[in-house]
Each structure stands twice: as structure tokens, then as C-alpha cells.
């Protein structure tokens, strides 16, 4: 695996991080991503794309895209991390490398607002139909505000103090028992 990372380092500029024996991460620049993914797929045996997902780093105004690849021969997962601009969120589509990549790109377009030009069906809705607010998985989407504006509040149930309630219900006609006189009185 170290040799593989060195081979990549000869070609492009990367930062690598070993998390576990079977999990490595690579940070790479946006413009190198297609080259790196095709190289890993065609020449290094990383043929399985497990997922493509985004993480919102709102404070740095960045999105982190993670491409998780897997190699069946050396049995290692390799996560490739790319930082892209959050304001003008756009990324190259990889639907030509993997046939199922368009699904992840459609999801990211809908839930994070990241655009993938020329990706098939990217503008179709995935889980949200007729959504007009900002993409909901962004950190600045306020779920409480959205739900209080969209849905009406149900009036709360009337509550009772259980002790008072039971006394009212069971012992309404409660009469103090007559005092028993002591025998010697």
C-alpha cells in the first residue's frame, strides 16, 4: 500500500493518512480527481466504488466530497477526499467511470445542492418531491424553523396531576370514616 501511495505521489500532489490497516484516506485537489480515479480503477485494481458522499464544513465555506474505493485483491478501502467551494458547489461527474455513480450525484444535488453537469437524471427528485427550500442536508438548514413554518402545532393534551385526578375520580364521595371509640372510654 505504501508503494501504491508513492506511485501516486510521483504523479500528483496528495496527502495521505493511514486510519487502519484496511482503511486509508487521500486528500487531493479538485482538478486531479478524474485522473486519480481512472488511474486507480484501470491500473491499481480499485474497481469497487462503495459510495460518494459529501460533508458540509460550513465554517470554512467548503464541502468535502469522499469517494470510497475498494480493492478486492489487497483488501483495502481507500477514501479520496476533495474539498470544493461551498458557494459555487460544482464537481465533475464520474458517471462514465461507474454506472451507479449517477445515483450518488443525484442525491448530492438534491440534498446538498452540489451540481454535477452532464450527469444523467441529476435534476430529478430523489426523496423530496416539490422541495423549494434550501437543500436540507446543508448545515444552515434550520429543521425547527422549517417544521414550525410548514406544519401547524397540535394543541397539547390536557394534563392532570395523577394524584389529584385519581382522588377526584375514585374518592369523590369520600366520607371520613367514623372514629372508633376505644373500649375503655
Amino acid at each position: 500500500m505504501e508503494q501504491l501511495l508513492n506511485r501516486i505521489k510521483d504523479k500528483i500532489e496528495i496527502e495521505s493518512l493511514k486510519k487502519r490497516d484496511d482503511l486509508y484516506f487521500i486528500n487531493v485537489k479538485e482538478e486531479h480527481i478524474i485522473f486519480l480515479l481512472s488511474y486507480l480503477k484501470e491500473h491499481e485494481g480499485f474497481t469497487h466504488l462503495a459510495f460518494l458522499q459529501a460533508v458540509d464544513f460550513q465554517e470554512y465555506n467548503l464541502f468535502q466530497l469522499t469517494y470510497m474505493l475498494y480493492n478486492y485483491n489487497i483488501k483495502v478501502n481507500l477514501g479520496i477526499k476533495v474539498m470544493i467551494d461551498r458557494e459555487k458547489a460544482e464537481m465533475v461527474s464520474i458517471h462514465k467511470l461507474w454506472n451507479h455513480a449517477w445515483q450518488y450525484q443525484r442525491e448530492l444535488h438534491e440534498l446538498f445542492g452540489i451540481n454535477f453537469p452532464n450527469s444523467p437524471n441529476v435534476n430529478e427528485s430523489f426523496v423530496l418531491e416539490g422541495w423549494e427550500d434550501i437543500p436540507p442536508m446543508r448545515r444552515d438548514f434550520d429543521t425547527l424553523k422549517y417544521s414550525s413554518e410548514t406544519f401547524y402545532q397540535r394543541p397539547g393534551r390536557s394534563t392532570n396531576d395523577p394524584k389529584e385526578y385519581m382522588r377526584e375520580k375514585l374518592y369523590k364521595n369520600f366520607v371520613e370514616p367514623p372514629k372508633i371509640r376505644k373500649e375503655n372510654d
Binding site: K19, L23, M68, K81
Partner: peptide, 20 residues
């Protein structure tokens, strides 16, 4: 702070969690 990916075999195949 950190990132990790953990996977297991469910009945349908590779099932994983990517936690940041």
C-alpha cells in the same frame, strides 16, 4: 475529531457507516 468508515456484511452485502 476524525473520519472513519466501518463496514460489515449484512444479508444484502456490504453495509457501512462513514462517520465524521
Amino acid at each position: 475529531a476524525g473520519q472513519t468508515y466501518v463496514k460489515a456484511e449484512s444479508t444484502r452485502g456490504e453495509h457501512g457507516f462513514f462517520v465524521v
